[in-house]
Design a protein around this nucleic acid. Sequence first.
DNA 1: ATTTTTTTATTGAACGTTCAATCAATAAAA
DNA 2: TTTTATTGATTGAACGTTCAATAAAAAAAT
Lengths: 203, 203
Amino acid sequence: MPKLGMQPIRRRQLIQATLEAIDDVGLADATIARIAKRAGVSAGIISHYFGGKDGLLESTMRQILWDLGDAVARRRARDDVESPRQHLHAIIDGNFDRSQVNKIVMKTWLAFWSVSMHRPDLQRLQRVNDRRLYSNICHHFQRCLPRPDAQQAARGLAAMIDGLWLRGALAPQGIDVDRARQLAYDYVEEQLAHATTQAPINA
Amino acid sequence: MPKLGMQPIRRRQLIQATLEAIDDVGLADATIARIAKRAGVSAGIISHYFGGKDGLLESTMRQILWDLGDAVARRRARDDVESPRQHLHAIIDGNFDRSQVNKIVMKTWLAFWSVSMHRPDLQRLQRVNDRRLYSNICHHFQRCLPRPDAQQAARGLAAMIDGLWLRGALAPQGIDVDRARQLAYDYVEEQLAHATTQAPINA
DNA sequence: ATTTTTTTATTGAACGTTCAATCAATAAAA
DNA sequence: TTTTATTGATTGAACGTTCAATAAAAAAAT
């Protein structure tokens, strides 16, 4: 069986199996034996390609972080995204992208949030992501609002997005994407409305 | 040593030790041996008073849920809380009560959110709490807004509160309570402002 | 008032299980 | 022949639970 260039294939398989295992039985019971079985390989292969379970978990977290960043980047790269409002909407849409709004990914996010409190490497990854969301939002609010107001608005919108996300993950019926997006849009409008009497709107 | 009526004392001790252990090493490494050692008792006593580790975790979650409910209830019981705005502020203040906004409790919340995805008993507890926050908020918005608007506003405020909470828990510098409360207050004002042209304000 | 019995509280060693990691063995491809 | 890929049994550590043993207090009996 062994051919060359198996590494990227196996890594993808095992990361996917990790996500599915976490969705299925939770991170606490996502053992390497279970993950390996789900991926259709032996347990030993995990240590071989990831150095150990910790390495697999870090790679899995990097994967979903990258997917989120990519979902946002793709929306923002579209030609018709120019005004602050359009950029903020693109960020919102990216965060509620279909690839992010499913039980598998949401359960994994929750698990990683919890674990990252006690693992510096995961904590670093997670904070880079938090900062990126805030900074992106803040940048576009600053195009219409004075800096302190923009920062406060950015904190509010970031919290709104994460909060809708969290409550969606915990709710039995899952997240209502359209309703969540609308709430985030509304929040943006409220903040931009304050700009009319304070600073020029380039929206 | 053994005196009568030790049960409530030991239960309190062990729940406190559980919170501290989770804060210290995370839920995954909060073993009964460690928890017992921190409480200054033997490991066997946990099964004796809680039936097992699962029982201890459920009791610990009940405790922090009760603390949160109590913090909100105390604020709302004050004489000067009458108008919808005052009630909503009381709910916000309760959720950012000092007893809730500390690293120990926040880490425990994160851990329980994650674990409750795979344990029906904890999931039930957690959802009762979510619903309570939403229902309380919704009730008071309905005193000034048409029902659909009130429900949407309630979803927004609940998400804002949880989101501020989550980002506060994950942030290296912790949560800025005053800033968080102000953002929630501002959101309430925006929602109530829409009521002026649609329904009478009793605020 | 003293002794005996019962109840409640607690310990910690022992047990069986489960886990991540290791590594010698194997096999296909280069 | 060398390199890359993979297996799965083995190992040792760590875990939650159990339980016989112990001790103090309370209750009952003398």
